[in-house]
């Protein structure tokens, strides 16, 4: 049965981007205000889910050609290597480095290796959530 869901599809296009922007915001804000890689990842996944709702799984696969298991693995590796970088400096594992920089446009910004770790978390969360939803969705 074909249904007319132009409204949904159009709205989704806009809303998805809003959600993604919000996800990015919440991911970066995490170090100073509530948020972080975890919630960011979940929000990103919700955006993709919304896409899946509006379109269908195959289409979304074409739009976002990502193997989510690999995404999970990449996330894990990023998190692991961020933490493991300290091994090469012979300081305890997980020792982070950060500094404050004056960047144009952003002003005083802190660059923190923890953010990189959080990126790993983010990717894993997106990867796993999408793996779960996609496999169940396809199996139905």
């Amino acid at each position: 049965m074909r249904t007319n869901d132009v409204m949904l599809k159009t709205a989704t296009k806009v809303v998805t981007f809003i959600i993604l922007m919000f996800a990015v915001h919440i991911f970066f804000a995490g170090h100073y205000t509530p948020g972080g890689g975890f919630v960011g990842g979940l929000l990103t996944a919700s955006a993709i889910v919304l896409l899946m709702l509006a379109y269908d799984i195959e289409t979304v696969k074409k739009i976002i050609p990502v193997n989510y298991v690999m995404l999970t693995a990449i996330g894990l590796l990023i998190a692991l290597s961020t933490a493991a970088a300290s091994i090469f400096f012979n300081v305890p594992f997980f020792t982070h480095a950060y500094d404050y920089f004056d960047l144009p446009l952003f002003g005083k910004t802190s660059l923190h290796s923890a953010a990189l770790f959080d990126l790993g978390v983010y990717l894993v969360v997106v990867g796993v959530t999408m793996t779960i939803i996609q496999t169940i969705g396809e199996d139905e």
Binding site: M70, A73, L80, A84, F93
Partner: peptide, 16 residues
């Protein structure tokens, strides 16, 4: 930490 990290690393690689 190596006995923990090495299998973790390889397990992650194997996922590819």
């Amino acid at each position: 930490l190596f006995p923990i990290l090495i299998p973790l690393l390889f397990a992650a690689i194997l996922l590819f």
